[in-house]
């Protein structure tokens, strides 16, 4: 390597291993090498400007606040359909269940009596309730179906809206002389459930259906209770707006 080439490469990179090796053999080159390395040390010192003390802390803090916002940004950045994956799936399965329910239930004969009995068994624990529900509360609910009760032949212990074969209805229990008696007041907007006999029973309960112009009244009581009498009393006190 001639002096010119050596010098060129030295000025390009004073720590070039090959040059350092070559300088070992040649005192003139060694002198050039030392000079170049001293010069680089001078440059290095000049370039080593002071770094702000708090820079490192700032950089770490930036990351922390960024990762805080990043996690919330990530939620926002999700595509709309991804955001709603779970609710849509739930909604779809509910919709499917409703479709299946109607496709299977609606065409089959609707035996109101059977349904009334099932309903009573399903909420059998309600029959044991003893706390009185005032007539006012009953009427507030009944008003939503457009009706009003003047009185009931017994203390009301249960009053709730329920679904009677897809029909929104009022489910009442009052304490008769013959034990707790269940009353379903089902507006006659839909005739779907109005199939089957008006009298029904199983080995524990008997029931009767009174078909009215505005609503049907379904009574369920223990076997042997005088249903006709109670049907009369309930329907006499029932007013429609």
């Amino acid at each position: 390597m001639d002096d010119l080439e050596f010098r060129r490469r030295l000025f390009a990179d004073p720590s070039d291993e090959q040059l350092i090796d070559e300088a070992e053999q040649d005192p003139a080159k060694k002198r050039l090498l030392d000079e170049a390395q001293d010069f680089d040390a001078l440059l290095g010192n000049a370039l080593n400007v002071p770094v702000p003390d708090d820079l490192q802390a700032k950089l770490l803090k930036n990351m922390e606040s960024e990762s805080d916002t990043q996690s919330s940004e990530n939620v926002v950045q999700l595509s709309w359909y991804k955001r709603f994956t779970v609710p849509i799936a739930s909604a779809a399965s509910v919709a499917l269940a409703v479709m299946v329910y109607f496709s299977t239930v609606v065409p089959t004969p609707l035996y109101a009596g059977e349904h009334a009995l099932e309903h009573v068994y399903y909420e059998e624990s309600a029959l044991k309730l003893s706390k009185e529900v005032t007539l006012q509360v009953v009427n507030e609910k009944l008003a939503m179906l457009g009706g009003k009760l003047e009185s009931l032949p017994g203390k009301v212990t249960y009053a709730t809206f329920c679904n009677f074969k897809g029909q929104r209805s009022l489910h009442l229990i009052f304490q008769s002389d013959h034990g707790p008696m269940t009353v379903f007041i089902v507006p006659s907007e839909s005739n779907d459930y109005r199939q089957g006999d008006t009298q029904f029973n199983d080995d524990r309960y008997s029931g009767s259906i009174n078909k009215g112009a505005n609503a049907d009244t379904i009574l369920v009581a223990k076997l042997g209770a005088p249903l006709d009498k109670y049907q009369g009393e309930v329907n006499d006190s029932l007013r429609w707006l």
């Binding site: 370039l47 080593n48 400007v49």
Partner: peptide, 24 residues
């Protein structure tokens, strides 16, 4: 990186901004 940025822009404030932005 700060020193490199400093010599690139020759302004300590800009250099600091550059390094912060780079790490961000």
């Amino acid at each position: 990186l700060y020193r490199f940025a400093y010599w690139l822009c020759q302004d300590p404030t800009i250099a600091e901004d550059l390094v912060q932005e780079t790490f961000l």
